[in-house]
Design a protein around this nucleic acid. Sequence first.
DNA 1: CTCCATGCAAACGCTTTGCACTGAT
DNA 2: ATCAGTGCAAAGCGTTTGCATGGAG
Lengths: 143, 143
Amino acid sequence: MTETAPPADASLPAIGVRTTRQRQAILTALTGRTHPMTAQAVHTALTGAGHRIGLSTVYRALHRLAEVGLLHSFEVGGERAYRRCPDTTHQHLLCDKCGLITECPPHLVDAWLTELRATTGFTPHADRIDLHGHCADCTAAAR
Amino acid sequence: MTETAPPADASLPAIGVRTTRQRQAILTALTGRTHPMTAQAVHTALTGAGHRIGLSTVYRALHRLAEVGLLHSFEVGGERAYRRCPDTTHQHLLCDKCGLITECPPHLVDAWLTELRATTGFTPHADRIDLHGHCADCTAAAR
DNA sequence: CTCCATGCAAACGCTTTGCACTGAT
DNA sequence: ATCAGTGCAAAGCGTTTGCATGGAG
């Protein structure tokens, strides 16, 4: 398994991606967020903050950045949303209530996936698991 | 947990859905399929088979039938696809190669979900889990 | 007889693409 | 100097909706 550990901020050239004002802005906007953002949301946020950037650029950049592993993309209600990946974990817990995405403890999944595979013959994509539900906070709030 | 066991063919009225020529055709087209179909695919199949049915009717019917539990819907590459549910299991294994959908043995999941919840506080939607990967056949074919 | 359901066509919203220009390497 | 990246506007595509008609209960 090749490590795609995301560089802190911008070692873009090292991955074969040119460093541009727009891409930096997008990465910055996405940094520190626990909730994913759609292309439109990113565009609105950036233009609202005074940046000059085209919508299609946002789409293309997000696509590219996800491709090289700097972002993770999620299917949220028929829309594509992106988030910076905080680590190498690609197993996510998505809260359908508040949109929060947390990482799933790998060891917890791996054992189960192995068992699943052994039992059913089905080979799960261990590096791309999105589990829907309610996060701890929303679960607590619901009671 | 309320049982939503799908009636063999058409106890539609019992669920509050009127029995129409179009809905029966849709259910028939979907019966016995292991792969899900998109609205467009269903429409093409039906009109190709000589049925007179509007595209929007297909959309509305699929939506409604999924709502009452006769169909399961899946997000497949940004599109919505539907399949008749063979049983009460709502935990699916989706093959990204051939599109095959199989049911996941409930006991295998439930224990794990319980553990996940206890460990993380996250409450998974146990009745709506879609796991992507390669089915047994495609896994075998790949080697 | 009353509504739910249908068909058609228009509208919608998100995303992609063509093309000429800009800017990073 | 070269070519990836950008901006704009138009097109694409799956899906939804308004409205008048049709058929199930």
